[in-house]
Simulated scan of single mutants.
Amino acid sequence: AIELHAATLAWEGNTLRIHDTVQAVAHEAWSIAQAFGIDEKDVHVTSPYVGGGFGSKTLWQHQVLAAAAAKLAQRPVRMTLSREGVFRVVGG
């Protein structure tokens, strides 16, 4: 993975908004909905800039952890993996 991974997540009631650099927007929405037991239509993923796609930008553990943290904290959470974190957590 060349590019760092980062996402900003915020709950608005039972709706989760995710601003991410993910290549698989629909897959991320469906997977997060499954993880949190909510309807897929309540997960809104925006990914306006993916970059070159050289960073395995799909769903990994950090998005799920950030969604849980945002729900627990009741405020938006931004998670950015360090360079080392990308190599440890992200496959590909």
Rank of each mutant, 00 (worst) to 15 (best):
Ala24Asn: 14
Tyr49Trp: 11
Lys71Phe: 09
Ala33His: 04
Trp30Met: 12
Ala24Phe: 12
Arg17Lys: 14
His44Phe: 06
Gln61Tyr: 02
Val90Thr: 10
Leu72Cys: 07
Arg75Cys: 10
Val77Phe: 05
Lys71Thr: 00
Arg75Phe: 00
His27Ile: 09
Val86Asp: 06
Arg75Met: 14
Gly52Thr: 10
Asp42Leu: 03
Ala70Gly: 07
Ala67Asn: 08
Thr46Trp: 06
Glu40Trp: 00
His27Val: 12
Ala69Pro: 00
Val90Ser: 06
Ser56Tyr: 07
Ser31Pro: 00
Leu16Ala: 03
Gly55Val: 06
Val43Asp: 01
Arg83Met: 04
Lys71Arg: 15
Ile32Asn: 02
Tyr49Glu: 10
Val45Lys: 06
Arg83Ser: 04
Glu84Ala: 15
Ser56Ala: 15
His62Gly: 00
Glu40Ile: 05
Phe36Ser: 05
Val45Ser: 04
Ala33Ser: 14
Lys57Arg: 14
Ala73Arg: 15
Leu16His: 02
Gln74Cys: 10
Glu40Gly: 00
Ile32Trp: 01
His19Gly: 08
Asp39Trp: 01
Ala66Asp: 04
Val77Gly: 08
Trp60Asp: 10
Gly53His: 06
Arg78Val: 05
Trp60Met: 05
Ile18Ser: 08
Trp60Glu: 03
Ala69Arg: 14
Lys71Trp: 09
Val22Gln: 01
Gly52Ala: 14
Ala26Thr: 11
His44Thr: 09
Leu81Lys: 06
Leu65Arg: 14
Trp60Asn: 12
Gln61Met: 11
Phe36Asp: 03
Gln34Gly: 10
Ala70Ser: 15
Ala68Phe: 07
Ala67Gly: 13
Ile38Asn: 02
Gly51His: 02
His44Asp: 05
Val86Gln: 05
His62Thr: 04
Thr58Ile: 13
Ala26Gly: 10
Tyr49Asn: 12
Arg88Trp: 08
Thr21Leu: 10
Val25Ser: 03
Arg75Asn: 04
Gly37His: 04
Gly55Ser: 06
Trp60Lys: 08
Lys71Leu: 13
Gly52Leu: 12
Ala69Thr: 11
Gln23Trp: 00
